[in-house]
C-alpha cells in the first residue's frame, strides 16, 4: 500500500540538517503501522513526503502504487492526512468545519456518515461550538472526522495523541482499531512508547534513521540482554546505587520499578538468573535499601528503544 525506498530529506541552505536519513519501509493493506520516536526524529518529514507535501532529496516512495512526486494529484485524491498541529479552523464550529472539508473533498457528510458515525456521536452535542473552544481530546476527534470524511484508503496521522490525556488517547486508539477493521491502512506517528504495542508493526526512529522495523512482539523478543525489574523503599537511592552495580549494562527508572539490564551471555555459561537476582539483592541490602523486590521481565518497546539509543 505504502512504500518508502531510501528516502532522504535535508534542510538548511547547504542541506546541512539531515532530517531523514535513507529510510525504507513498506506498509501492508489494512495495517496499523507506527513510526515511534521522539520529537525531531524525522517523523513529520517522512509523513510530509508520503503525502506529497515535500519533495525527497533522493529516494522514492509510493502510495497505492502512485509515485509521490509524479502522481501527487492522484495521491491527494485518496489519502487522509491529519497533521501534527491542530489544523482546523478554530473560528468555525464543529459542524462548519466538517461541512467545509466534505466539500473540499467533493463529498458530503451524509455520504460517508457510517465511517465517522462512532466518532461523530461524541462530538454531536458540541456541533455548534467553535473548534477553538473544544478540549484537546475533542479537537483530536474532530480532526480525525475531517480526515476521514472522504473515505480515504490510507490515513496518515502525525502525532495524533501528543499532549492528549491517557483517557482520550485510549479512546482514540480504539477508534483507529475500528477504522482498521473497515479496511483502512493507517500510518501513525507517536512519541509515546506505550502506544507501540497497539500497532501491527512499528518502526523505531531516531535522528532520521530507522533503528528497527518489526512487530512490537518481535522487537521485544529480539532484546539481547536479560532484564530485571527492581523495587525498593527509596527510588532515588535505588537508582543511585544501581548505577554503581558492576554487573549491569544499563539501569534506569521505569514507572514504579527500576530496570536493570545485564549481559545474557553469563547465563549461557550455566549461571542461573536466580543467582544474579541474589547477587543484586545482597548488593542493594548492603547499601541500606529495604523491601527489595526483584523479578525477571520481558523487555517492552521502550526498553528496546533505550537499548538502541546506547
Amino acid at each position: 500500500m505504502v512504500t518508502a525506498n531510501d528516502l532522504v530529506k535535508t534542510y538548511g541552505k547547504k542541506n546541512e540538517v539531515l532530517a531523514v536519513d535513507h529510510v525504507s519501509f513498506s506498509v501492508k493493506e489494512a495495517e496499523i503501522f507506527g513510526l515511534i520516536g521522539p520529537d525531531g526524529a524525522g517523523k513529520t518529514s517522512i509523513f510530509r513526503m508520503l503525502t506529497t507535501l515535500l519533495l525527497p532529496d533522493s529516494g522514492s516512495a509510493s502510495v497505492q502504487g502512485f509515485d509521490v512526486v509524479k502522481d501527487y494529484k492522484a495521491i491527494r485524491n485518496t489519502v487522509g492526512y491529519m497533521p501534527g498541529r491542530f489544523s482546523l479552523y478554530q473560528d468555525l464550529t464543529v459542524e462548519e468545519n466538517l461541512d467545509f472539508f466534505a466539500t473540499v473533498f467533493e463529498t458530503t457528510v451524509a455520504e460517508n456518515y457510517d465511517l465517522i458515525k462512532d466518532i461523530y456521536v461524541q462530538l454531536e452535542p458540541f456541533k455548534k461550538r467553535r473548534a477553538g473552544k473544544l478540549s484537546g481530546g475533542m479537537k483530536q476527534k474532530l480532526a480525525l472526522c475531517c480526515a476521514l470524511i472522504h473515505k480515504p484508503t490510507v490515513l496518515f496521522l502525525d502525532e495524533p495523541t501528543t499532549g492528549v490525556d491517557p483517557v482520550s488517547r485510549k479512546e482514540f486508539w480504539e477508534m483507529l482499531k475500528r477504522l482498521q477493521s473497515q479496511g483502512i491502512t493507517i500510518l501513525v506517528s507517536t512519541p509515546y512508547m506505550d502506544e507501540a504495542d497497539l500497532c501491527d508493526r512499528i518502526a523505531l526512529i531516531q535522528n532520521g534513521k530507522i533503528l528497527s522495523i518489526d512487530t512490537p512482539e518481535n522487537i521485544s523478543a529480539a532484546y539481547p540482554d536479560k532484564l530485571f525489574a527492581v523495587k525498593a523503599n527509596k527510588m532515588s537511592t535505588l537508582l543511585k546505587e544501581l548505577a554503581q552495580f558492576k554487573n549491569a549494562s544499563a539501569t534506569y527508572s521505569f514507572g514504579e520499578y527500576a530496570h536493570v539490564a545485564t549481559d545474557s551471555k553469563q547465563f549461557e555459561a550455566g549461571n542461573a538468573p536466580v543467582e544474579f537476582e541474589k547477587e543484586l539483592e545482597d548488593y542493594l541490602a548492603d547499601h541500606g535499601l529495604e523491601n527489595i523486590e526483584i523479578k525477571e521481565i520481558k523487555a517492552s518497546v521502550e526498553d528496546c528503544f533505550i537499548k538502541f539509543l546506547k
Binding site: R48, T51, T52, L53, K73, R76, N77, V79, Y81, M82, P83, G84, R85, F86, S87, L88, Y89, Q90, F101, V104, F105, E106, C146, A147, H150
Partner: peptide, 13 residues
Amino acid sequence: ETGTMEVLLVSPM
C-alpha cells in the same frame, strides 16, 4: 501558519 494549508494541499482541491 495554522497548518490548515497542509490539509488543503493534501486534498483534491
